[in-house]
Design a protein around this nucleic acid. Structure first.
Lengths: 346, 346
DNA sequence: TGAAAAGATGAAAGCGTGTGCAAATCTCTG
DNA sequence: CAGAGATTTGCACACGCTTTCATCTTTTCA
């Protein structure tokens, strides 16, 4: 065998591995694809030599012919928003485990979808797209995808019509909020709270409206007056300012139900550090998400929780089901919520 | 012109656009590449028809022939760690602006590098790799890349030998910590603190060791006794436990310098909610990073700051410089730090 | 032991794009 | 209007891989 010098700084190719192993290039391809027929010892030899040469099949070339890019796109408005970052983290780990890589795209913070961005994303040909963003119509997103069927995270409101039948353009993860919110209201009611305020997120977002409507419905059924809405935008700073303003000029409230945990932190800090009120003695606070910071001692927040692992598993399941059956009508998974009781209520 | 029906659910290709526009396929390719010669009106026509057909050039095919994937890989141990998530967020936005997409990879939390992961990453052929992870030798990472030259974030310690010359295998972003740490110590000293403890991160990580050594050096030069090291791991929970333990069994300290802001939060909460000590009256606390939460009222942390935008710009600059000059020796950018004074010192 | 079934192998045909090269067209000058 | 130069255009090939298909080899079973 001749001891050929390899080029110094370019990646090894299947051709080189084949030459070195005295097999055809096709055999190399087969060695890297599990369900192909290849004599075991031959496969072993090829894999050994591949390792020697630091060879990995080129995903782009593979994608071109197989139609699988092994890329999963995630679209988020804010990576550093706390809930999102934890979800991206867990999702990336889970996807990695299944052989996928995460392709991250950021939309503008006004939750609108940029056509340029969608075109770029489509160019990368992701096997699936997970949209945490809500102000884009499924039909728009679908138009911008190739074979991939986008996955939406959906929060069904109690009264809303289920549009799953009429919209088979995307798969869905349904997050049911009723149970968690009902448990929260029951707890507040148990401690004597009647005037409950709702700190909103960005008003147009569906995470916000569905949460608000669910809360209103729950409170009505429990014979409570409708919640006063304090307008926020999911951020700490907005929650802080809105709370200060609300308690200074308005009648105040016995409790605040926040659209998310970060908002709840803003509420708590405003109450304690600006308004001189005590939590939970004077005002009770409930959040939504149960992010990592919620158990930190400064907040110790009572909050409604999605189970992150369950949520990630459901998303991965959706992706795999869809890839195994590209022609299936809109797939769905459903997830529930529950209350985590800590120190900001009673 | 015949009104051909297009296939319902597969992506448009350059061929189809060419047919519809009565031009060659090559012209379509040229229409999408700025610096090629093509009659302007022809280009315009092609782009218009491309839009009609929802055509975008396939990145995988393009990458195969041009050698540019337009993918930038980022390797992190934790996405949801606060500093990292903010950096990923800003970086993704900036890269998107330059036409790149972010490819996210998560290492194991012990900061070790998985060869399997590296192989997968190499398979995707990223144009560049940014490693926030420290326990992998540059030579290992370089072996796993193709043409791409990895970028390391480096924290030069004051006495450390500069290995930039001997290691041209990677580009570097140097973050100088001296100024910020010196300002912090000066401030603490000004308020009469002498016994300063250091809350460490994962001991083996270079972010930790370099920060610790710089602190030791700064304190020595200012005539202070060396800092007592309290062992943490960058997380809130570890910081909380370590602080409780340290102040219960040891002599305590006048001030704690934490390796990062999240750790500082753990320190503050332990002091206030578990040990009954006041911050800053009894113990002063300084952090490192200036993440978004640091200005929240519950903490209001005095901290050493990298400027995030500067940092992201420097990274993007490194990437572009490298792509314009693949053969250049190890490129570098340098960044400084400074103290942000808030309420946890005096 | 022989024929049929099963398994292993390689040649060739793509996948969708960019690029070198030569031919074709246009522009300009005197 | 000729001819040189600049610009535009298309053919053919390359990128690295998977996947049919036909061929060759091995196993199975009566």
């Amino acid at each position: 065998m001749s001891d050929k010098d390899d080029a110094p700084r370019s990646r090894a190719t299947a051709e080189m591995v084949a030459a070195r192993a005295n097999v055809s290039r096709v055999a190399v391809s087969r060695a890297f694809n599990p369900h192909t027929s290849l004599k075991p010892e031959k496969r072993e030899l090829i894999l050994r030599i591949a390792k020697e040469l630091d060879y990995t099949p080129d995903r782009a070339a593979r994608a071109l012919v197989s139609g699988r890019s092994h890329l999963i796109a995630i679209i988020v408005p804010d990576v550093y928003a706390h809930w999102e970052s934890q979800e991206i983290d867990a999702l990336t780990t889970a996807l990695q485990h299944e052989g996928f890589a995460t392709l991250l795209f950021k939309t503008r913070t006004d939750y609108s979808m940029d056509e340029q961005l969608l075109a770029t994303m489509r160019g990368h040909n992701p096997d699936s797209v997970i949209a945490f963003v809500e102000n884009v119509k499924p039909s728009t997103l679908a138009r911008f995808m190739g074979r991939a069927v986008p996955i939406y995270v959906h929060y069904p409101a109690p009264g809303a019509t289920d549009d799953s039948v009429s919209n088979p353009l995307h798969d869905r993860l349904n997050v049911l909020q009723w149970d968690g919110i009902d448990q929260a209201v029951a707890l507040l009611q148990g401690y004597g709270a009647r005037r409950i305020a709702y700190l909103s997120g960005a008003p147009e977002s569906r995470a916000n409206t569905s949460r608000q409507h669910t809360l209103e419905e729950v409170m009505a059924r429990r014979g409570l007056p409708p919640p006063v809405v304090v307008k926020g935008d999911f951020s700490y700073d907005a929650a802080y300012r809105a709370t200060v303003n609300f308690f200074r000029v308005g009648d105040g409230a016995d409790a605040v139900f926040a659209v998310n945990d970060v908002g709840a932190f803003g509420v708590i800090d405003a109450l304690r550090h600006e308004l001189g009120l005590r939590v939970p003695e004077d005002v009770k606070v409930v959040g939504f998400d149960d992010i990592a910071q919620s158990h930190w001692k400064s907040y110790n927040l009572t909050t409604v929780k999605f189970d992150l692992d369950e949520r990630v598993n459901a998303l991965v399941r959706l992706i795999l089901r869809r890839l195994n059956n590209p022609a299936a009508p809109g797939l769905q998974e459903t997830l529930n919520t529950r209350l985590i009781v800590r120190g900001t209520v009673g």
